[in-house]
Design a protein around this nucleic acid. Structure first.
Lengths: 217, 217
DNA sequence: TCCCGTTTTGAGCGATCGCTCAAGGAGGAC
DNA sequence: GTCCTCCTTGAGCGATCGCTCAAAACGGGA
């Protein structure tokens, strides 16, 4: 093994171990010893390489979010309609669950409420997702009556936040979470239906949207 | 103090202290000692009255959800339009935040992923909210083109889950959470606009909805 | 070969964890 | 008064926490 590659490999092991420990034991059980055990290294290396447990978890959060986005980026970018976006969300969620990656970001978000050092990392992880979703939304909404009415950046954040909530929900009530996802798909069908309206009806919708202010409430 | 009222008062103090400790220290910091300190009682009473820390937190979760629903039930039931529902959500969230009640349910949901004893209580707490929201949705959606297209029970769960996600989001990125809420309000304006369409356009929307299947995807 | 900087190790520090326990109030029944 | 039951207390158990440290192991340059 090359000299300079040793420390780097250990860091990789610790980051992977941190994500695995978060899935398995939650934020409360992700201690230096459990993370190191999951990584197969000595627990003192957590502090040698990352300084503290919180800093390791923050780094793992960034890495986890990047990996997850990378796993699904191609399919997310292939989305062209709102209903496809929801179908993508359901499929991605099922796959992540199958692979045991679920709720890591949610655990870190919960921990960030009381561990200030985790907040920037979790916010960055969410933003990574939100930016991907925002790009899709901008493309999907362009030309529809919704264009210019809804803020794509805000909507993307809402979608990202909702997904975190749904992942947590699924952990305590899978059936309820499934019903929620189905209802959202039905809601997406409404938005898609507006796109498919005949020109006159579509014009009426657009007009009503403008008249209602387009700024909510 | 009457004989039978002593234990009951201690239990009340512990439940309140548990909620306060959850807000202040998060699920990871809500130990028997911190909860008892917040309640102003001896830590051994946690185990005398509730058996374990997890059982106390579960009871506090139920109580917290009930109290929160009770605090806002009147105004929630006064909601008659979808846009009012979102405005209510934003106002309730701001009030709860002001009062320091935010993210308790979110903390418990995160903890429930790895503490099986918490899962039923958090699921029940979410359901309490979802049922209130579901009743409002049934009333609000009745007679609109959305009636019969979207499942009110599932949609209510989606709303409840999304709100949990948004509370967590706000803890790490207040501006992003605010943008998300605004975007949702804009989305609500679209649904409201459909309600306000002229009869012909509205009929076209309803027809398109039926043609698109009404079951999502 | 020896040296030196990096990495790894296992022991151990003080603090906190969930929980138990023996001991002692504080009413109410008699 | 004497019980009896419920409630409360402070000490303390073993385990785990984040983190530190001295010493060993290792690999490359001289």
């Amino acid at each position: 093994m090359a000299r300079d590659a040793k420390g780097r490999e250990t860091r990789e092991k610790l980051l992977d171990g941190a994500l695995r420990a978060l899935v398995e034991h939650g934020i409360a059980g992700a201690s230096a010893r459990t993370v190191a055990a999951a990584a197969g290294v000595n627990q003192a290396l957590v502090f040698y390489h990352f300084g503290s447990v919180d800093d390791l978890l923050a780094a793992a959060c960034r890495r986890g979010a990047e990996q997850r986005v990378a796993r699904h980026r191609d399919r997310l970018r292939a989305v062209t309609r709102l209903t496809d976006l929801l179908a993508f969300g359901r499929a991605m969620h099922a796959e992540e669950r199958e692979a045991g990656h679920v709720a890591v970001l949610a655990q870190l978000l919960a921990g960030a409420q009381t561990h200030p050092r985790l907040a920037p990392a979790t916010a960055a992880g969410l933003d990574l997702w939100a930016e991907e979703i925002e790009a899709v939304l901008r493309r999907v909404l362009a030309g529809t009556p919704l264009d210019g009415v809804t803020d794509p950046a805000g909507l993307a954040r809402a979608v990202a936040a909702s997904f975190v909530g749904l992942e947590l929900y699924e952990g305590v009530d899978p059936d309820g979470a499934d019903a929620a996802l189905t209802a959202l798909e039905q809601l997406g069908a409404l938005l898609a239906a507006v796109e498919e309206l005949n020109p006159m009806a579509r014009k009426a919708v657009a007009h009503t949207l403008r008249r209602s202010g387009g700024r909510g409430r």
